[in-house]
Amino acid sequence: MDCGTCESASPLQVHVPDEVEVDLTMTDKARDMLTDAFGDDRSHALLVGVLSGGCSGYMYDLQIVESTETPCQELNINGFRVLVPRASSHLLNGIEIDYVDRLMGGGFKINNPNASSSCGCGESFA
């Protein structure tokens, strides 16, 4: 295979959607659960990201991080630092972070007005 000269084939151009200023809300239940998770320590942040994959094409990715190298918008929601990757901002604007308290399929949930569909488990969307 001719890869030695692959530099002569320029990278395909990625269409990068315009970054939007993310508006994000959190339900009381989600806020309570995050309070339990963070305690009094506000040095960490909640990273709300999107990965490719999942049954519907995109998957939510929630992490508690100290910092990240990913370029992010930083929001303050109910006293919590929330980081949203700039590359995913168009997919996450307007979302509501909820917490569903049940034994099976419980946990943090994202209600996303941008999603045209989502998979059964609610972890991925399109």
């Binding site: 890869c3 990278p11 395909l12 999107v50 990965l51 490719s52 990757p85 700039r86 590359a87 997919l91």
Partner: peptide
Amino acid sequence: LLGQNIQIRDI
């Protein structure tokens, strides 16, 4: 791709 560090070249 969503900002992942992956480049695609058509060779």
